[in-house]
Design a protein around this nucleic acid. Structure first.
Lengths: 183, 183
DNA sequence: TCATAGCGTTTAATATAATTGTCAATTGCC
DNA sequence: GGCAATTGACAATTATATTAAACGCTATGA
């Protein structure tokens, strides 16, 4: 979100100086300098003042800004979004990117000892697959049960009832994929 | 800009609690409480975190928010936008509302003693008119000159060259209108 | 050449947003 | 009813944005 560059571009396009814009917006030139350098994240109120003074609507500003963003490709571990159902110390599901914008949903799943997704009644189209990368886990799909070790994997139709249980005394990690994404 | 209500509406629509949303967004429930009560104006960064966690784009958020706003009708004195040309201690032009969204532009003009708009070469379509509310001012339009007192007024075609000078020792105030607006 | 005015940046002080810990009110569950 | 869990709100602290006043720079003109 390069707000600074965007603001600077619009401001210069209209031939305004930082001081000029600041005066119209009721802020100071120093503030604009910091915002344009992305050294501070303005409050919504401040940004609105600036855009009103230009003038341009918030919607238009963010619309062109978000459109011009290059699609994000690489994600650091801490950038995954936590979509853990319970939120407590049970299963942890960490999603890669914003699945709602893509056709593919990839999760990094962590099952502490004793973790259990329960006999979910989830029923959605598409397919699910995953590979165990650490520990082992018991997977049940439509009646079939198997104990998968690190390196093993699974692949099934998402409409079938399925359940994951870590019956070992060691944390288990799985990388799974799902298409189309489900929420 | 009722950001608080809008955020609360979207959050509740998705059945999330403040704490739930806060956890996903990496903020605290207290912050969300304050934002929803409009007791604080969140930073753009904070708002983006919240909207990403919902998820909804900034553009979409402000688009629906700004669309649903009822048109502003009343303006306090301090809400006028300063469109003074020079910016210095000369003439002060204070515009009522956002003229670019309307067909009518109304200004509250202040001419300190000695103020002079100079023989502007402005040439745009439309008409201009005004009424002196305090002090007096010398107005020249296309060669004709007149000294207007409080209560007097003027009305002319905007394409004619015009000039305003305060040759008295008292500040002069004028309320003027212009259509269509010019920038 | 010196002054003047405009520009964007930086820094210390101040105002404001965000966190932390706690609270009363509500809900669900024996 | 009574307990536990969850919710949204609040006061005090901490973190951060914003201000006000400086700085260095460039251009312009006497």
């Amino acid at each position: 979100m390069d707000i600074g560059a965007k603001l600077k571009a619009i401001r210069e396009e209209r031939g305004m100086s930082q001081r000029e814009l600041a005066a119209k917006a009721g802020l100071t030139n120093g503030t604009i300098s910091l915002i344009e350098a992305n050294r501070t994240s303005p409050s919504v109120a401040s940004l609105k003042s600036l855009l009103d003074a230009i003038p341009i609507s918030m919607a238009a500003f963010f619309s062109t800004l978000e459109d011009s963003e290059t699609p994000k490709v690489f994600y650091r571990a801490h950038e995954f979004t936590e979509i853990t159902p319970g939120g407590d110390g049970a299963v942890s599901l960490r999603q890669l990117g914003k699945a709602e914008h893509h056709a593919l949903q990839v999760l990094h799943e962590t099952y502490p000892p004793g973790a259990d997704t329960g006999p979910e009644a989830i029923a959605h189209d598409g397919e699910e697959a995953g590979i165990v990368v650490r520990g082992c886990i018991e997977v049940t799909v439509d009646g079939q049960t198997s104990n998968l070790q690190a390196g093993d994997g699974y692949l099934f139709d998402s409409r079938l009832p399925h359940r994951f249980r870590n019956i070992s005394d060691q944390t288990c990690e799985v990388v799974s994929a799902c298409t189309p994404p489900t929420f």
